[in-house]
């Protein structure tokens, strides 16, 4: 199967969903966008269908909808940009919602499925190698429910792949996305006036530019690329250097204090980093992008350029 006939995108309101829908429909491909509510601004050409993936019979409804619209390619991007304090609701959407999407795709005989995942799923662990390949086990993070839910979703996906070998299955694991318009809890963290870091740690980080991430999804939707790919930018940068480039003020705090301090605001949902987040600024979890670059094309922005695009757009400081 080459070019898709019609593409279904779950999570039309998410950044990836909306950008991908716009790009695909600009290419003249029929796009069916699915979400719980209509996004505020969306091109007329994109067809919107309301569906709540957390409902018990969402899989049957989705299967019916996909069959009726004769959708042959599905992009599953209905994941939260920011975890909420409601652990159960998050689980319902991220894990059970993914299960419903998989069941629906199987029933509607979808030919290609593109699954949005994250390199955060590898987890920050002291014994990670400097570059995590796609074959590395997904160990997640025990405190971060948003990561654990998606690890579970990926294991459901692996089972789906074994049961339906005829479906072209592409998993794109993006690292932290940076750019002028992308928003999630990571961006929130870096936008704060004073960025809290861990005393005595200066991890290497990698970013991918939002355009590169969307482009990778577009390639995976249009062409057959079965398999798992890390979608990352080139180059790694220490956190301290990135903050200095941005002219951000940072405050280094001892790990136990920061973890305790981070716990309450994150529970209270004041826009603070979710629990488990600071381990991602402590240990290495850099992914190896070689396979993704070879299959889905070289990224246009490096890690540094993605960071500068983000910094420049927020007018934190003129980049010198």
């Amino acid at each position: 199967m080459d070019a898709p006939h019609a593409v279904g995108i779950t999570g039309l309101g998410t950044f990836l969903g909306q950008r991908l829908a716009e790009r695909l429909s600009a290419r003249g491909i029929r796009v069916v966008g699915l979400d719980v509510r209509r996004p505020y601004r969306i091109a007329e050409k994109i067809q919107f269908q309301r569906i709540d993936l957390t409902e018990p019979t969402a899989d049957a409804a989705l299967a019916e909808l996909l069959a009726r619209e004769r959708v042959d390619t599905v992009v599953h991007a209905a994941f939260r940009a920011e975890p909420t304090a409601d652990v159960e609701a998050d689980h319902e959407l991220e894990t059970i919602g993914s299960l419903h999407v998989l069941n629906g795709c199987a029933a509607a005989k979808v030919r290609r499925l593109v699954f949005a995942s994250s390199t955060m799923l590898y987890g920050p662990w002291p014994d990670n190698p400097n570059f995590l390949s796609e074959d590395h086990p997904l160990r997640g993070h025990p405190d971060a429910h948003q990561v654990q839910d998606r690890v579970e979703a990926e294991s459901l996906l692996a089972r789906f792949g074994r049961l339906h070998p005829d479906v072209e299955l592409t998993v794109l694991r993006t690292c932290w996305i940076m750019g002028p318009s992308y928003l999630d809890h990571v961006v929130n963290y870096f936008e704060r006036p004073v960025v809290a870091t861990l005393l005595g740690y200066d991890p290497l980080l990698q970013f991918v530019h939002e355009e590169d991430a969307v482009r990778a999804f577009e390639r995976a939707t249009l062409e057959p690329h079965p398999g798992v790919y890390n979608v990352v930018g080139k180059g790694v940068w220490p956190l301290s250097t990135l903050l200095r480039l941005a002219g951000k003020r940072s405050l280094a705090l001892p790990a136990p204090l920061l973890y305790r301090m981070g716990e309450y605001p994150s529970k209270a949902q004041t826009g603070d980093a979710p629990s488990g987040f600071y381990d991602y600024l402590r240990y290495l979890w850099v992914a190896d992008g070689e396979r993704g670059w070879a299959a889905l094309g070289e990224p246009e922005y490096s890690t540094k350029e993605a960071w500068i695009a983000f910094v420049g757009s927020r007018r934190m400081r003129r980049y010198r």
């Binding site: 002291p126 014994d127 190698p129 400097n130 570059f131 390949s133 861990l198 005393l199 005595g200 740690y201 200066d202 991890p203 290497l204 220490p238 301290s240 001892p254 790990a255 402590r282 240990y283 290495l284």
Partner: peptide, 26 residues
Amino acid sequence: ADWLITLPFMQPYLARIGGVRASRDN
């Protein structure tokens, strides 16, 4: 060794002067 390279204050400096965590992949 991992325990040394993940020790606070050790990690940034060891990495900067050329230390790498001992692992087969690395």
